[in-house]
Design a protein around this nucleic acid. Structure first.
Lengths: 172, 172
DNA sequence: TCCATTTATTTAGCATACTAAACAAATGCC
DNA sequence: GGCATTTGTTTAGTATGCTAAATAAATGGA
């Protein structure tokens, strides 16, 4: 980023900050995801499957919709994921008695065993690196990111570009 | 058993910071990607196709391998992407004269036209939200994220989990 | 009660992504 | 020169991810 020595330099510096932040977020996400995938692979699983297993371990039997929400994915995506996990003997589907539209997803003993073996935090690399920050920086980072997240959420709401998971119905 | 505000609780607080930071990074990345996809969709394209078009606009005719590197993806992935773009009349493949193993990817006039219409920065939402931070916070965020990125890079190197390819992650 | 609407899940079809393996062309080393 | 190795691309197969449409069950209102 070239910095002009004029009035524009202030704005350029801000633009540079923004570009660098975006680049960092993309890098951190990509790298963390890649490592998660490797951890998963050692056990013959995939990244999303590990996520699902850990969520099911924490929350017990939950509906497919709740699993979708917790994984930030659409129901149709999770249907496929659960299909593959079921095929591999990690989970089973159970019809809910209270609401027969609902499918509950449950870990099999094998799935539960694997869940226990897997470290809680699968984003290991990011976690380890975060440990290397000073406590103050880490806290500061959290504060700023949380406010940034709120700003993005607000922006998303304002634009009506919502993932419609939470609220907005679609435009037919 | 919260009687001891001992080392335990300090560590718990740090763990909470870390979890929240990871959550924020994942959220920010996911949301930015979703918005990019919507921008693309308005023109009948997809996120990665927009990336490819903008890269080709900037760098001219480049080989499939170079395009793969710049998009942080594998050759086989880009083969498929180029196939679809070629089918849609956005690019064409040209056999290199110097090295006949090489395929050069070139924008068609139609592809070049679309490239000109598309704004450079596709991570709009993130950029807009970053604007809402105070200058001081934005600068602080940059400083911490840059040092965090360096820590992750170091960790990756140390583990030998390197992607063994180009480093720059790319925005879809 | 009966029917329109809403909610939960699945199906179908596409676009990305990756790894592994197959091929083809260029290079290197004897 | 001749063959092993490297480099560039494609093919095959699997896993994610999304939207749109199809189903099925629950709910609400006239």
């Amino acid at each position: 980023m070239p910095e002009a020595p004029s009035k524009r330099s202030a704005r350029d510096a801000e633009k540079a900050d923004i570009d660098r932040i975006i680049e960092a977020v993309v890098y951190l996400y990509t790298e963390a995801r890649r490592v998660t995938k490797e951890v998963a692979r050692e056990r013959g699983l995939t990244g999303p499957q590990i996520s699902a297993i850990k969520i099911l371990e924490s929350f017990g039997d939950i509906s497919l919709s709740e699993l979708s929400d917790r994984m930030s994915a659409r129901n149709s995506t999770i249907t496929g994921l659960v299909d593959r996990m079921e095929r591999n003997g990690l989970v089973e589907r159970i019809r809910s008695a209270e609401d027969r539209r609902v499918t509950l997803i449950r870990l099999t003993p094998e799935g539960a065993r694997i869940a226990r073996e897997i470290p809680v935090d699968s984003m290991q690399i990011l976690g380890a690196a975060l440990d290397s920050l000073s406590r103050r920086d880490r806290h500061e980072l959290r504060r700023i990111l949380v406010s940034l997240t709120a700003a993005v959420e607000e922006e998303v709401r304002r634009r009506g570009h919502a993932p419609e998971r939470a609220r907005q119905p679609e435009t037919p």
